[in-house]
């Protein structure tokens, strides 16, 4: 209780300090700059929307791709894999969760990007004709590339946590399902997943947190273009990566203050997406 209060207080102080430091930006542009679409610090134009869009889009792509893979991996380890290989696979996943993100970023540029080119081209040629978010031409570094590498980064996180959750489901319940003539998949669907639901959500939110805040890997893969595009195959920018990239290079006070303000927005977006994720689950449960 005391710890939680202390944490909340620290968070509140941080928000206040950020607000204080970035105050000139809010004073000059009101709240409007948050939805501004143009970012040109040299000309004194600050619009945060391209970064917000970039952060949200890459994170959503990461979750859409990563969550099923992570759950599948965790289920394989806890329900399907022979006892002998469970331990090595779990250890490997835990190891992957601990790899520094800059390594994932470099690996993404050198290895994943070339592999993604044909996939992007194919999606653009097929789905891209009807659905604008898949429209081509693919640009190499893009929302999609960043999202895919983010997915790879959050899979170990989500997978490691959900595996622990699945392990806590009592063996009794599995046997109840099997004894009623459930196949393994039916046992998982009715016996393991329902009691694990809350834990799965927690794991996904943890993964989402990592995706939203990821800086270096996204910086390397997103293309660093502060513009909003309809297609996920275009280049973009994200909140965390623009802060990391521009903070050290600028002398302009308003520019620096705008970057701090973006940090504040990132914090708020993270909290909002967490709340949204929880609401979504609350509704699914009811």
């Amino acid at each position: 209780m005391l710890g939680a209060s202390a944490l909340l207080l620290a968070l509140a102080l941080m928000v206040v300090r950020f607000l204080q430091l970035s105050w000139p930006v809010w004073k000059a542009h009101g709240l409007g700059w948050i939805v501004g679409t143009h970012w040109a610090p040299a000309e004194g134009i600050f619009g945060a929307l391209p970064f917000i869009v970039g952060t949200v889009v890459t994170s959503v792509i990461a979750l859409v791709i990563g969550t099923p893979i992570a759950l599948g991996t965790a289920l394989f380890v806890s329900e399907i894999a022979p006892a002998k290989i469970r331990r090595p696979i779990s250890d490997l996943i835990d190891l992957l969760a601990a790899v520094p993100s800059v390594i994932y970023g470099l690996w993404g540029i050198i290895v994943v990007l070339p592999l993604l080119q044909p996939v992007e081209q194919f999606l653009a040629d097929s789905l891209g004709r009807f659905i604008p978010i898949f429209a081509g031409p693919p640009s190499g570094t893009s929302f999609f590339a960043a999202g895919v590498v983010l997915a790879i980064m959050i899979v170990p996180t989500i997978s490691a946590v959900t595996r622990e959750v699945f392990v806590t489901v009592p063996q009794d319940v599995r046997e109840a399902a099997f004894a009623l003539g459930a196949t393994r998949w039916e046992m998982i669907r009715y016996g393991v997943l329902p009691p694990a639901q809350a834990g799965i959500v927690g794991a996904v939110i943890l993964g989402l947190g990592r995706a939203l805040g990821e800086t270096v890997a996204v910086l390397l893969l997103i293309g660093q273009i502060p513009s909003i595009s309809k297609s996920i195959f275009s280049g973009g920018y994200s909140m965390a990566s623009v802060i990391a990239n521009e903070f050290g290079q600028s002398q302009e006070p308003l520019h620096l203050q705008a970057l701090i303000a973006i940090g504040l927005v990132l914090f708020v977006v993270t909290v909002l997406m967490n709340i949204f994720a929880r609401l979504l689950v609350g509704r699914a449960k009811a």
Binding site: V173, E175, G181
Partner: peptide
């Protein structure tokens, strides 16, 4: 079984018909 093992997240009704639900 030895220990009662109803499906913990299911209602009394759903537990009773679990055998049908499980395997469609």
């Amino acid at each position: 079984f030895q220990r009662p093992n109803p499906f913990p997240t299911m209602s009394i009704l759903d537990n009773t018909i679990a055998g049908f639900k499980l395997n469609g």
